[in-house]
Nucleic acid binder design. Structure first.
Length: 569
RNA sequence: GCGAUUGUAGUCCAGCGGUUAGGAUUGGGGCUUCCCAAGCCUCCGACCCGGGUUCGAUUCCCGGCAAUCGCACCA
């Protein structure tokens, strides 16, 4: 496939109302696109297909959180550190470098230095380009998050979220309680994310403001099975594991058994992703799952697979499916101080016998007065190991207090333990909606030499318009019947398009170009003769026509959308 | 961010230091029993933005913005 395809396709998309580059009136802004009427419909259809799988089939719960987040969230998530680098370009060879890395051998804590300090260090230590020895240019702040302030003044820093995931993590306690404190807990969210890309390229593939469909599945770290795994175990996957450079085809069960994919739940959602992409019209011949390379994987990720599709731009990531371990919840727990763990009940309570330090309140009270309460609670968290010479040394609000054994006793107790606390692990299938949208268009786009124009072979479920309805001529009562059918179809909640302009061929062509799967035409036979009361229905991809009763159009279209074969009409 | 190429109706392309800026196609209206972009008539629609040179710039020069490609970055 040549580069021209994307140019041609974007031209059709712009002309027909799928996609418009944003702000063209004012010269345009790179990496930003608006969805036109047809694009908006199709995008909603893809989103609905995704919801049908995750919300309906899997029973996950959906939320909608803020796009502007306070700085704390991204400090915890690591984005503040990870997305903010000082960069410097060599003035000779133009290669960019992390400024803090260059001064690493000369300065303490280079990552805390300001741009001015870094530039001073370049001069002081005579640091040159490590590649060619050229002079280094001026330092630039390289922040991929859009920064803003919340409220008046500039004290409260906020960022536009670079992913929707954090909105789920910061709501973990609410979600966990909503789910009645049970795992697995599947949560989904769609919405926009923002990254101030340095150099957006490849049209809709790298956007500065983009739409995501994210799933965060919280599971017990010790149980990465999945109840419906058996339903997909024989499904085939095209995989590109990170220890080889060629793709292998194997079943889901094989991938897990051979340890290619780390665990069943991850494998299940890799296959789910294939199901979704196929359903919305991705050509599975041009789909593969590539495992992240060891050094490419985030340090916390246990395993990560990207769904990649072959586009005119080359293999392009459109979905990432990662086992993020306990990283996200641990970080938010650490930064917020909140308990984000799950209480895992044992199958049967365990009797555990251990030695416990018990405070003697009767003695403590009179001896320590108002300090007694703090001392007692500190005592009870002590263990036998800290008793030396029958004494325990405590640190109460900075004061060192030594207690003899008249103030406590060590008792052997037997307690029933019902379970333990664990930090859930996160399985994250994260879908780039705009990339999927574009990929569907590219995989559906065919330049039909015979017809002399392009066809968009969208799957019916995704097509923004399901049926075009035309009177052969805009007179003689043909228009009356056509308008009635149009109203019928709309009454059955099926998007249709009425067209009475120009010649019939032109109207078919228009519908083919935007991907409408069927067209219905009212002709003179519809009004009189043996075919009275029937109309023609035409299939987009073949051009084949059948006659069906005019009254049945709405019903037939619904059947066709639901998968009935056109040839059986 | 660097380099190369480019920027004219919705789309594709032509052109020029002084033009009513040209064509094709799309789009609107009309005619035609009109089933695969048929034909005829008719109408609407553009020189990316800002400076400079010049009597005069859509055209030449500089800068910006945007696009395509390569490098880098990002995932």
């Amino acid at each position: 496939m040549s580069k021209d395809i994307s140019t041609e396709l974007m031209s059709v998309c712009k002309r027909r109302g799928y996609i418009w580059p944003s702000f063209e009136l004012y010269g345009g802004v790179a990496g930003m696109f608006d969805y036109g009427p047809l694009g908006t419909s199709m995008r909603n259809n893809i989103l609905e297909a995704w919801r049908n799988i995750y919300k309906v089939r899997e029973g996950f719960i959906e939320i909608d959180s803020e796009t502007i987040n306070p700085e704390d969230v991204f400090k915890a998530s690591g984005h503040v550190e990870q997305f903010s680098d000082y960069m410097v370009n060599c003035t000779e060879c133009q290669l960019p470098f992390r400024a803090d890395h260059l001064v690493g051998n000369f300065c303490e804590n280079p990552d805390t230095m300001s741009p001015a300090e870094l530039e001073k260090a370049f001069r002081d230590f005579n640091i040159k380009c490590p590649e060619c020895g050229g002079e280094l240019g001026k330092i630039e702040d390289f922040n991929l998050m859009f920064k803003t302030t919340i409220g008046p003044g500039s004290s409260r820093i906020g960022y536009l979220r670079p992913e929707t995931a954090q909105g789920i993590f910061v709501n973990f306690q609410n979600l966990y309680r909503y789910n009645r404190e049970k795992l697995p807990l599947g949560v989904i969210q769609t919405g926009r994310g923002y990254r101030n890309e340095i150099s957006p390229r490849q049209g809709m593939i790298r956007m500065r403001e983009f739409n995501m469909m994210e799933v965060e599945l919280f599971v017990n770290p010790e149980d990465k099975s999945w109840p419906r795994f058996s339903e997909v175990q024989n499904g085939e996957l095209t995989l590109l594991p990170n220890d080889t450079d060629k793709t292998v085809t194997m079943t889901v069960a094989e991938a897990v058994d051979k340890g290619v994919i780390a665990n069943p739940v991850l494998a299940y959602f890799v296959y789910t992703t294939k199901q979704l992409l196929e359903r919305v019209g991705i050509d599975t011949e041009k789909l593969r799952f590539r495992q992240h390379l060891k050094d490419e994987m985030a340090h916390y990720a246990a395993d990560c697979w990207d769904a990649e599709v072959l586009l005119s731009y080359g293999w392009t990531e459109i979905t990432g499916i990662a086992d993020r371990g306990c990283w996200d919840l641990s970080r938010h727990s650490e930064f917020s101080g909140a308990d984000l763990s799950h209480f895992e009940m044992f199958d049967e309570p365990k009797e555990m016998t251990f030695k416990k330090v018990v405070a003697n309140h009767k003695k403590l009270g009179p001896a320590f007065k108002e300090k007694a309460k703090d001392i007692a609670s500190a005592l009870e968290s002590e263990t036998e190991d800290n008793i030396f010479d029958n004494k325990i040394t405590l640190n109460i609000n900075g004061e060192r207090i030594v207690l003899t054994d008249e103030y406590f006793e060590v008792r052997e107790v037997t307690e029933k333990v019902n379970g333990k606390r664990v930090i859930p692990h996160v399985i994250e299938p994260s879908y780039g909606l705009d990339r999927i949208f574009y990929s569907v268009l590219e995989h559906s786009y065919f330049n039909d030499e015979k017809r002399g124009y392009s066809i968009m072979k969208l799957v019916p479920g995704i097509a923004p318009i399901k049926v075009g309805i035309f009177p052969l001529m805009d007179k003689d009562g043909l228009d009356v019947l056509a308008k009635k059918i149009f109203a019928d179809v709309h009454s059955s909640e099926t998007p249709a398009y009425y067209d009475d302009s120009g010649t019939i061929g032109k109207r078919y062509a228009r519908m083919d170009e935007v991907g409408t799967p069927w067209c219905v035409t009212v002709d003179y036979d519809s009004l009189k003769g043996p075919n009275k009361g029937t109309v023609t229905i035409r299939e987009r991809d073949t051009g084949d026509q059948k006659r069906i009763p005019a009254d049945d159009v709405a019903g037939v279209i619904r059947q066709l959308i639901n998968g009935k074969e056109f040839s059986t009409l």
